[in-house]
Computed example of a mutant assay.
Amino acid sequence: MTLRVERDGASGVAVVTLDREHRHNAVDLETAAELSQVWRDFRFAEDVRAVVLTGAGTAAFCTGIDRAVDVPQPGSPYSADDPLLSIGPKSGDLWKPVIAAVNGMACGGAFYLLGEAEFIISSTSATYFDPHTSYGMVSAYEAVYMAQRMPFGEAARMSLMGTAERLSAQRAYDIGLVSELTGPGDLLPAALRAARTLAGFPTEAVQGTVRALWAAKQAALQQALAQAPALIALGNLAPERQADLFAGRRRAPEPRVR
């Protein structure tokens, strides 16, 4: 198992922890399948009325897809297999509120998760960045999700600047990506406090409100996401060239944190 799922039936809160600390909580195929399944299961769990999503350890919340994973692709520019498409709660048709508790790095494919959370509580030690362009890859799904949650100029800068810059937790809070900042030791208690409040309200009203909030943005989101596969097929470098750029990341200058 690559997830830890802890339920507190008394409060109605479940904590889902990405449990691959040795890989900076990167998502492999097993993790992707487990995430997809847990959101589907929570739809039927009457003892789960709100969820906290976090990552093990303090170094990273999630660093996207594990680059050690080999995902076979169909030999056609018109179709692609992306194992991250089903890892978010909304893709699993879960409309119970999910609060993301971010510690350490959140980058790349982490935005599939953050993009489908209701709101984000962040440790002051967290940083946010999108490495795609540095490695010859199109940031498509990630950029779309972040453009829905951040001012356009901030989303554009983060998506385009790759590994050269990281968004500090304070800056993420200032621009509205993050709703609350805490010290590293206070992160989970703060997220649990909010989740317990939501779980204490009538669940039909909470889920209806979640659904209404997403209805306000979902049409534009789905239209934008529909363009992503073609943009990736057109703009990505060949996998071996991506691997060369990724292997050279250790020689790159230290990123600027703003």
Rank of each mutant, 00 (worst) to 15 (best):
M1D: 09
G12I: 11
L18M: 15
H22Y: 09
N25L: 15
L35Y: 07
Q37G: 13
R40W: 05
F44M: 12
V48H: 02
L53Q: 01
G57W: 04
T58G: 01
F61R: 00
C62K: 00
C62A: 09
T63M: 15
R67M: 14
D81Y: 14
G88M: 08
K90F: 10
S91I: 12
W95V: 13
N103T: 14
G115A: 07
S122C: 09
S125R: 07
T127Q: 06
Y128E: 02
F129M: 03
D130N: 10
P131H: 03
A140Y: 07
A147Y: 02
Q148H: 08
R149P: 05
M150H: 02
P151S: 05
G153W: 10
E165T: 15
R166G: 05
R166M: 13
S168N: 12
A169C: 10
R171T: 13
A172M: 05
Y173N: 10
T182S: 03
G185M: 05
D186E: 08
A195W: 00
T197L: 05
T209D: 06
L213I: 04
L213D: 10
L213G: 06
A216C: 11
A220H: 11
Q223T: 14
A224G: 07
L225D: 11
I232C: 05
R241C: 04
R250S: 11
P255A: 01
V257W: 00
V257F: 00
